[in-house]
């Protein structure tokens, strides 16, 4: 349970960064932290005590050994790559905003209003 709570705390830190921080780079970093936390939480749910990785090997004796749950791993595998695309898109947006307003501070962007 301690691990689940620590992972949840990581997610809350990401939410805190998105709400409070004024800097676009910090906001991108905070959204990345939220992504890490949710991926890690899914894999923590999938772990089985004494389990081994879900890859068959030639000549490996599998009697009496269990494998960890492979389904969340498959879901998280695709999620990580999508996160990479979204990070690239956020960076493109931030650079665009910097080009227009010459600042990364979102309060100043609001004041200018287009």
């Amino acid at each position: 349970m301690t691990l689940y709570l620590m992972c949840f705390a990581l997610l809350l830190i990401g939410i805190y960064g998105i709400i409070v921080k004024r800097d676009l780079v910090k906001i991108i970093i905070a959204s990345g932290i939220m992504g890490y936390a949710s991926n890690l939480l899914l894999i923590l749910f999938a772990y089985r005590k004494g389990g081994i990785y879900p890859i068959l090997e030639k000549g490996k004796d599998m009697t009496g050994r269990v494998m960890v749950d492979p389904l969340p791993q498959a879901l998280v595998l695709t999620s990580i790559v999508i996160e990479l695309g979204i990070t690239a898109m956020l960076i493109a947006l931030a650079i665009r905003i910097f080009e227009k307003y010459k600042t990364f501070d979102i309060t100043k962007i609001r004041r200018l209003k287009g």
Binding site: A88, I91, I95
Partner: peptide
């Protein structure tokens, strides 16, 4: 896809 994005940046 990833390389084209980085190249555009």
């Amino acid at each position: 896809g990833l390389f084209v994005v980085v190249w555009s940046l």
